[in-house]
Nucleic acid binder design. Structure first.
Lengths: 259, 259
DNA sequence: GTTGTTCCATGATTTAAGTCAACAGATTTT
DNA sequence: AAAATCTGTTGACTTAAATCATGGAACAAC
């Protein structure tokens, strides 16, 4: 059985001739290889043209740079082209609570829509690039292009579903389930992006993972050790190799994004 | 200091002469006393008229009746007029996970938008009534009425924010914080509805509250006992009286809907 | 009203995860 | 390349909440 995914982004880019690499900042939505994951799905060529006009493409960030901060005025949503981002809130006591992990092709920043103010912050976990889509222009365009409106409704609905899955994950306890579910989620999202679902690098530290999953970093570490000992995954620092995906699913009791 | 809220719904209804009671099934959106909480905010009279044409008003349910079930085809969203509802998912092992609590003026069912299938079930926690809004008609109308589109974007955004607040509540542990936050949330939502923020009846059992908050029913019960002993709230079964709201906020470390 | 359920409170015990602490490996900085 | 900082692992101990168990109160059905 041959894997139908490329092993890494660089390799994929070198293959692409006319579509150009997605890390090329000037590539338009129609040519972006993330097209079938990002906002434009379900739009025809002409509609994508309109969308292209309002999208500010190819902004780059390095690790630790903010996309926006908690309390910032909300102006745009962001489509990730490369790299990974986390969203988080700082609680009264300054402790940061990770609320989301976002990978290429995913949309960020919808937490600002209801109040015109971002409810949390978003930072790059590594060097990355993104497109900025001014929201009021998107709204105007949506009113004129029903399929875009529909697409955006669906996108927001997806965010709701995702958050609610996370919610059930966090209330039905068990540290192991949570960690396993996160690994499966990353795995399946990688698969969607035509990357290996079995080998990937965790973009977050143990502390960030713990914060996201509502457990301590020590517990995260111990769970990795246990899963390792059972030969379910191989863990080398942030490098993860899934050895037995069905066992991993059993541990997770299949909650989050099932592949 | 005089309270500016009515003590209960019945009293409020008896006062209303031309607006008619909101439990009257035939009252239109323009006249519904929930107007300023529900979908129509930000619409003018004519737009509300259009909305009225697609809304199926005044459906009634009794305790335990389903609004929709997990896996059902998604057709409509629902606006609650009276009563309260919970949403939940059943996990593989049949254990039910409460994912949301909905009160009058709130909108239910947006979890179906992305997949055309409801991700969870919704049932009435007590006798209640609601309006059904067929989603595809709402979409069409939204494409023609920009302010309705905007309103709905905002409404979905609100759901996202709400879920993320819940998420941070569940990861930053402490049973007491969670219970306190839930009480404050209900309190402030009651306030918005011009009901007492200090006296209310919990619509859920201890088991449901526990499931929602990711703790056991015994823990919920113990937390109530402790808060009671500290004279922060008076608890008589489901009847709650908030005695010291600032102390309650301190316990909650102010997380969920702050009043 | 009586009977049968469901719901709630509380005690005793167990357990999973948190906390504290020390050290080793990585990564950055200079 | 050395120093300094951040990140990850593991152990020992503590603790908050889960589990198990009982009795009583509230509610529904008949």
């Amino acid at each position: 059985m041959k894997p139908n995914y490329q092993l890494d982004v660089a390799e994929d880019c070198s293959r692409a001739v006319k579509r150009t690499c997605h890390t090329n900042p000037s590539v338009s939505c129609g040519d972006c290889r993330l097209g079938e994951l990002c906002l434009p799905i379900a739009l025809d060529a002409q509609e994508i043209g309109h969308l292209d006009e309002i999208v500010k493409r190819g902004r780059n960030l390095k690790k630790g740079d903010y996309l926006y901060r908690e309390g910032d005025e909300f102006n745009s949503i962001y489509a990730i082209r490369a790299g990974s981002f986390k969203t988080f809130k700082s609680s009264w006591d300054g402790v940061e609570q990770v609320t989301g992990l976002y990978l290429p092709g995913e949309i960020l920043g919808m937490d600002g829509i209801s109040n015109n103010r971002h409810g949390g912050s978003a930072v790059a976990l590594e060097t990355g690039s993104f497109c900025e889509i001014p929201f009021h222009q998107l709204e105007e365009l949506s009113a004129r292009i029903p399929s875009l409106q529909g697409r955006f409704f669906r996108l927001m609905g997806q965010e709701i579903v995702k958050d609610q899955q996370m919610l059930t994950l966090l209330s039905s306890n068990a540290a192991e389930e949570r960690v396993a579910a996160l690994l499966l989620s990353i795995s399946s999202r990688n698969h969607r992006r035509k990357l290996s679902p079995f080998n990937f690098r965790l973009p977050m530290t143990r502390a960030e993972i713990g914060s996201y999953l509502g457990i301590t970093l020590e517990t995260v570490s111990r769970v990795f050790s246990r899963l390792s000992k059972q030969n379910i995954v191989a863990v080398d620092n942030k490098e993860i190799q899934v050895l037995d995906i069905s066992a991993l699913k059993a541990v997770a009791k299949v909650k989050m994004g099932c592949s």
